[in-house]
């Protein structure tokens, strides 16, 4: 299933960060949605800015327009302010993109556990990320960091207990 871009993607001014504040707000909002949708569709959890800049997301070849580096930074910073992006280095070269919040992930994972009879049993992180049982799930291949955040959210609600092994998160026991 190919990704369907919004109308803004074919609108040349979309690729220029607008100087007018009101216009820019609308534009960044559109960009934020587009980036999250795109990452969701393509299962992108971690992004390298230079690599991302070359993808069709920021580079519209039909239109011969691309969002330049500063523009991408502006968009990602905007997403960071909304807790959807986490920079993994200070130079802002790489970032984690949370196209679902940890709470949303927690919901998805717990409903999977419930449906597949994993409640009250221990599941390792590897099983969740890469296991045969989760192959059809949206969180298959999920970023380890994102997963832990989601499990922490579950633990807070009392729906799961994180099991640590030698100081690192190793598995989870769903409740």
């Amino acid at each position: 299933m190919s990704f369907i871009f919004p109308w803004e993607y074919d609108f040349p001014p979309f690729f220029t960060i607008q100087p007018n504040a009101a216009t820019r707000e609308k534009q960044l909002e559109a960009w934020a949605q587009l980036v999250l949708h795109y990452c969701h569709q393509n299962n992108i959890y971690t992004a390298d800015i230079t690599q991302l800049a070359e993808t069709e997301l920021f580079n519209n070849r039909n239109l011969n327009r691309r969002l330049d580096y500063n523009g991408i930074l502006t968009v990602l910073d905007y997403l960071e302010a909304k807790n959807c992006v986490e920079w993994s280095d200070r130079q802002k070269r790489q970032c984690h993109i949370h196209w679902q919040s940890p709470e949303q992930w927690a919901e998805v994972i717990h409903s999977w556990a419930r449906a597949n009879g994993f409640l009250n049993s221990v599941v390792t992180l590897e099983d969740l990320i890469d296991g045969d049982d989760t192959a059809q799930e949206s969180f298959h291949g999920i970023n380890r960091r994102t997963l832990i955040k989601a499990l922490e959210a579950l633990q807070k609600k009392g729906l799961a207990a994180i099991i640590e092994h030698e100081g690192a998160v190793a598995g989870v026991k769903f409740a």
Binding site: P12, P13, F15, T16, Q18, P19, N20, T23, R65
Partner: peptide
Amino acid sequence: AETVGRICRDDS
């Protein structure tokens, strides 16, 4: 016109 938000720019 841009300042009042009627038009927007495409700087390429």
